[in-house]
């Protein structure tokens, strides 16, 4: 799951110019802006057939690829 997310972020959101690691802080560094986050969320919803409700859009869930993977897994289980 991490690899798919990293590939999407690198290729679609960062224009293939930058590589990231699963633990990198996506939000504080300015790596991705708020529009890119919205695109990332729609990608996650399609790719993993889940719905991300607005109240789940928190820093804890989206700070890094690791955090996003954990979040998706927790939604899938429940």
């Amino acid at each position: 799951m991490n690899d798919t997310l990293i590939r999407y972020i690198e290729e679609e959101l960062l224009g293939g110019e930058q590589s990231i690691a699963a633990e990198d802080d996506l939000l504080s560094s300015g790596l991705v802006d708020s529009l890119a986050i919205m695109r990332l969320i729609s990608f996650i919803e399609q790719e993993y057939s889940i719905k991300v409700p607005p109240q789940d859009m928190t820093i804890e869930h989206f700070i890094s690829v690791d955090a996003i993977s954990n979040y998706i897994k927790s939604v899938k289980v429940s």
């Binding site: 939000l27 560094s29 708020s34 986050i37 789940d56 928190t58 820093i59 804890e60």
Partner: peptide
């Protein structure tokens, strides 16, 4: 408001 909060409205509300 730190950068990360500007991208995550639910956290910003908190």
């Amino acid at each position: 408001v730190p950068e990360a909060y500007t991208k995550m409205p639910a956290s910003l509300a908190q």
